[in-house]
């Protein structure tokens, strides 16, 4: 296992290196000059405009050749210095730290609730195929998949915040006291976005689990188990679900990457200070450093999730060996 882990980890290095060159190249090839965006309006003379241009360019290290910029960027990145955001004009770590934390905070709850609901519902739907229960969740999934999440969010805001006034219509908790009431404040502000995102996520995962289970329970070994007179509970949970876990593991590992991603539109609707807004803003403003950092981060996460996935497969399926 350790050998496998070490080998996979070492194999990541050249992949990350290639990804970094590709990302850096793509962003540098994009049209537009971020420095011009940073020159203040109202500079009276061309001489001063040029002064600003040169000073900003030097400060951001953009006056160096492309290979030198790349080497500096990689070196600094490995030291934990991700450079300076051009749109926020501060270190990238400062720009992304709090929003990333907030997005993770939201997504952990969404992930937990989503799997707590979708796995039992998916299993039951598969077992009770074409029943009222299954039909309900099928319709639910279809509606959930068809309806944009932000629309669900807006409906919740209208009903629970504006009409019933039970929960805040958006934003983050403020004037925290540093005691247990803070938890209550967070809960109040997180309820609506968590429910919205969970519903959006349920639609897909329920169908995923259901389909995996349907495929498994139609296999010969399940028929054999039934013919042996095993109880339905044992068949479903001990035999079928264990085998259906492989696609679920893929889903869980994929969701782990999603934990760190922001739902830009939902975060905007609920005025949640998450990473989604930062990314959209950075892309619109050609903020290379933020976008590069986040893309590299997601690339490393995705590669790591693949390793976790492989380990997960080995854990749930004895046929899979880690070599």
């Amino acid at each position: 296992m350790l050998k496998f882990f070490l080998r996979r980890f070492l194999s990541l290095i050249p992949v990350i290196f290639i990804i970094s060159i590709m990302l850096f190249g793509i962003f540098k090839a994009m049209p537009g000059d971020p420095v011009k965006l940073m020159i203040p309006a109202g500079v009276k003379t061309e001489e001063l405009r040029q002064f600003y241009y040169d000073t900003i360019k030097a400060r951001l290290g953009l006056d160096k050749s492309l290979p030198e910029q790349y080497v500096r960027w990689m070196y600094n990145t490995m030291q934990g210095d991700f450079g300076v955001s051009t749109s926020f004009q501060r270190p990238v770590t400062e720009v992304i730290a709090t929003p990333l934390k907030n997005s993770i905070r939201l997504n952990v709850f969404v992930l937990v609730f989503s799997f707590l609901v979708s796995i039992p519902v998916g299993i039951r739907s598969a077992v009770k195929r074409h029943s009222l229960f299954d039909s309900f969740w099928q319709v639910f999934s279809l509606v959930g998949l068809s309806m944009p999440v932000f629309f669900i969010g807006l409906i919740f805001i209208y009903v629970f915040a504006i009409t019933l006034r039970l929960l805040p219509g958006g934003g983050m908790p403020f004037m925290m006291k540093g005691d247990w009431t803070d938890i209550l404040a967070w809960a109040r502000y997180m309820t609506l976005p968590v429910i919205t995102l969970t519903i959006g996520s349920l639609a897909g995962t329920i169908r995923y689990v259901r389909n995996a289970m349907i495929e498994i329970i139609s296999k010969d070994f399940i028929r054999t188990a039934r013919s042996k007179g095993l109880s339905e509970k044992v068949i479903i949970y001990s035999h079928a679900f264990k085998n259906a876990l492989i696609p679920v593991v893929t889903l869980v590992a994929g969701s782990l990457v999603g934990l760190f991603g922001g739902a830009a539109i939902t975060e905007t609707i609920f005025a949640w200070n998450g990473i989604g807004y930062v990314l959209i803003q950075a892309l619109n403003q050609r903020d290379y450093m933020v976008v590069l950092t986040m893309n590299m981060f997601y690339a490393v996460l995705t590669l790591s999730a693949n390793i976790i996935m492989d380990i997960g497969y080995a854990l749930v399926d004895p046929r899979v060996k880690l070599k």
Partner: peptide
């Protein structure tokens, strides 16, 4: 207190 609100719902709030 000045807080960020979504432009779609600001007046409703």
């Amino acid at each position: 207190i000045v807080k960020y609100v979504d432009q779609n719902t600001d007046v409703d709030l």
